[in-house]
Amino acid sequence: MILNIICIVLIGFGLLFFLGGAVGILRFPDFYTRMHAAGKGDTMSVFLILVGLAVYQLSDFNVANLLVAGKIFFITIFIMWASPTSTHALIKAGLEEGQKMWTRKDGKEDPQA
């Protein structure tokens, strides 16, 4: 029972961070800031949701369920390692392609970006 409550809390927070990522992708003004929302909102929420599911999976304990929980944990580790790498590769590609950078001063574009 207590495991179920932990699982529900973790998945709820994960969904909240997913919401933040999705709203950020829609609202932020330029490519770089959208990259922030995409890269970060995902990592933490994937971590929280998958750990919650692994906890639920371990609530009746045997070897098969332990292996499945190990695989879920491995997916988590993989995503937390792959997400910064692909964020870095994509933002570097965007910079080389010459994306404009949005600044606070209205209408005046950053000259070097």
Binding site: A22, F31, R34, A38, V46, L50, L90, Q99
Partner: peptide, 25 residues
């Protein structure tokens, strides 16, 4: 731009990964 679309597809892919585990459960 094209790269915005790539980022969006990447984000959807991450969400789909979670959704697959959820469907399995």
């Amino acid at each position: 731009t094209a790269i915005d679309r790539i980022v969006a597809v990447n984000v959807i892919g991450t969400k789909t990964t979670v959704l697959l585990v959820l469907i399995g459960i």
